[in-house]
Amino acid sequence: MTGCQNARCSQLMKHTQSRTRQADVLTYPAPIPQIASSLDALPRTVACSMNQGSNVTSMDFHSSYQTLLLVGTGTGEITLWEIGLRDKLVSKPFKLQNIASYSSQFQAAMVKDSSISVTKVSWSPEGNLIGVAFSKHLIQLHAYQAPDDLHQFLEIEAHVGGVNDIAFSHPKKRLSVVTCGDDKLIQVWDLTGYKLYTFEGHEAPVYSICPHHKEHIQFVYSLAIDGKIKAWLYDNIGSRVDYDAPGNWCSTMLYSSDGSRLFCCGTSRVGDSFLVEWNDLEGAIKRTYVGFQKNSFGVVQFDTTQNHFLAAGEENQIKFWDMDNVNMLTSTDAEGGLQSLPRLRFNKEGNLLAATTRDNGFKILANAAGLRSLGAFESRD
């Protein structure tokens, strides 16, 4: 806890029990955006449509290979797509090795219903590992070597019930895996499957996690389905903050690419969606973005890119915002066929955007630079 002796840490992780901070909205003047240049930078041109063959539940682009997309599905399958080639590099269906080695709760759940789906896929920061979370108890870790060598090396019964999120972090300069689940817990694992930490304190299933660091301070935000936000250091002392998320239901937090700005997006139980910039030092809303409809069925998904743009999927559309302006910048239906609440994922350069479709696939949208990168594959072929 020596890192928490400085003022920076005490400001970031001060003990707070405020349950009304979301009402303390700070107002900032909204600058007039440079509309033309902003629209040109957004990936809005449909470059291709891909058929996965089953419902796409999660996507993540590789950190270095900008056209390499990892996809998880409702049947438990994971697939690596090379978007430049419009082709699957490798596909791995879910396969349970030895059910007898797992808990009686998991065995009973699989006997009752053998179906299992992917809830989240995530690349490690270096891009050599893949984390996969499933709707029942399990996570998997796979090792990746370019171009198409993907093999599973670890499977963990991480939670009782669904595993709702998985992410990589570096506590104490050690690559670890963070998970959360229906059992109201956040767990931290090393790469051998050893449990390093268990964070307890939520009173409802934990919907999402957001590991991050400020200077040398490593921490994890967690958001439960009762709308409670907590933050944890890698120790056994407990949550450092207790905030209320807007909507008081399912929410996700993401930092901007440079780690300086925090955004929160989600939907309330009555279907009101929101997207806000969050003051992570004070637990207050910095700005609220406008442009959502009322009464959504499901939870809106979002992503950020280039330290500049936000995108959310709603009304069979992709909606875009400039981070510095609360008004929606533009929207697109991607030539039709998107899910009512499409899942979205930018690649790391922000020139490609994947969005899920109703016909068990996804579309790739691109800006001019993205189209050039995809065209380079075609000319090479």
Rank of each mutant, 00 (worst) to 15 (best):
S49I: 14
A366P: 14
K319H: 03
P246E: 02
Q105R: 13
T20S: 10
W232V: 04
L223S: 00
D359Q: 12
I217H: 09
E200V: 04
W232G: 00
D242F: 15
M328V: 13
P33G: 05
D60V: 01
S114I: 00
V56G: 02
F134Y: 13
G193L: 02
V71E: 08
L80T: 01
K348S: 14
L262P: 00
H212P: 01
S124D: 01
N279G: 05
K214M: 14
L233M: 08
N351Q: 08
N325T: 15
E282M: 04
A7I: 11
Q152G: 06
A100H: 13
Q97M: 06
W249Y: 15
A47F: 04
F292H: 12
G227I: 10
H15M: 07
I32M: 06
G131A: 10
S340P: 04
L196E: 07
N248H: 07
D381G: 15
G72V: 08
V300L: 08
R287Q: 04
N325P: 05
Y221L: 07
R269Y: 00
M13Y: 04
F219I: 04
V118I: 12
T305R: 12
L80P: 03
P43A: 01
L310T: 01
T2Q: 03
V118L: 04
L281R: 09
Y194I: 12
D258E: 10
F377K: 06
T179S: 11
L338A: 03
F134A: 11
Y194G: 04
D322M: 13
A30P: 02
F297A: 02
H62E: 10
S117V: 07
S101D: 14
A376F: 02
S63Q: 07
H15W: 06
F320C: 05
S169I: 01
